[in-house]
């Protein structure tokens, strides 16, 4: 399952794969994923994928397993560390123009696609 707040990802893949679209920010995506992981879903991509900093891009897409299994401790550690990393960055309050927002969405999409192997 792809968890994303990026509508570019959602629009491109919603009819093809299992997507949970989050109407929220980067952190909301991480937190939703964390809750799922605690239910027993496995984290499949690194939540801090891409070197674009979490206080820079507003968009995040990540993948967890479609099926629920036993609690995966590695997944828990990675997602919890990622949320801590997210929180340590100073938040910036900048209104981006459309071009920049589009670029952030595109980078998030291509990073996700590098894992989707499409």
């Amino acid at each position: 399952m792809v968890i994303t707040n990026n509508d570019l990802v959602n629009n491109k893949y919603k009819d093809l794969i299992n997507i949970k679209f989050i109407d929220g920010n980067y952190r909301d995506v991480l937190v939703f994923a964390r809750d799922k992981i605690h239910e027993g879903y496995e984290l499949l991509t690194h939540p801090l994928s891409s070197s674009v900093k979490p206080n820079e891009t507003p968009f995040k897409s990540l993948i967890i397993s479609d099926l629920k299994g036993e609690l995966n401790l590695d997944s828990v550690i990675v997602i919890e560390n990622s949320i801590m990393t997210y929180d340590k960055f100073n938040k910036v309050n900048i209104r981006f123009n459309e071009k920049v927002i589009g670029d952030f969405k595109l980078i998030d999409l291509t990073v996700l696609e590098s894992a989707l192997n499409i």
Binding site: S49, S50, S51, L106, I107, T110, V111, S114
Partner: peptide, 18 residues
């Protein structure tokens, strides 16, 4: 080597290292 998609790639003998 950094290998994660557009603007994040490295190439070895022309091969995308991811």
């Amino acid at each position: 080597l950094q290998t994660q998609g557009l603007l994040h790639d490295t190439y070895v003998y022309g091969v995308d290292a991811k």
